[in-house]
Simulated scan of single mutants.
Amino acid sequence: MTKPAAPRRHLPTSPFKAPATPAPKDFAVSDQVTHDVYGLGRVIAIEDGVAALVDFGSARMRILSPYAKMTKL
């Protein structure tokens, strides 16, 4: 199994636009969220910039930042 390639850095002399970095998602305690794998849940705790603890009903999961698969409703 090979490791995934590292993203290429943007050269300042490149004629192409630099890739846009997505804005970090911000969640607060009691926000209702949906997750691509776990479904509907509610944020019960936040570790600033590190993770969010979410109650999905059947399980409590610690979702790590950047929360790629989680969306606020």
Rank of each mutant, 00 (worst) to 15 (best):
V54P: 00
P4W: 05
I63N: 10
L53A: 01
T13N: 15
P15H: 10
P4L: 10
M61C: 05
R9G: 00
T21R: 13
P12K: 09
I44Q: 12
A68Y: 01
S58W: 04
L64G: 07
Q32K: 13
G57Q: 10
D55Q: 06
I44N: 08
K3M: 08
D26Q: 11
H35S: 03
L53Y: 00
L64K: 12
D31Q: 08
K3N: 11
A52P: 04
T2P: 10
V50D: 14
G39A: 04
P4C: 07
P22S: 07
V50H: 13
K17D: 05
A18N: 01
A45I: 02
D31V: 01
V54K: 02
L64M: 09
K72L: 14
P19N: 09
P24R: 05
R8S: 07
F16T: 10
G57T: 11
A51S: 14
P7I: 08
M61N: 08
V50A: 14
P22H: 01
A68I: 05
D26S: 15
H35Q: 06
P7H: 04
V29C: 10
T71N: 06
T21G: 03
F16A: 09
P24T: 03
F16M: 09
F27Y: 12
H10W: 13
V54Q: 00
K17Q: 09
P7N: 10
P66H: 05
L40P: 04
P15Y: 08
R60S: 02
P19L: 00
T13M: 11
T21C: 06
A28S: 11
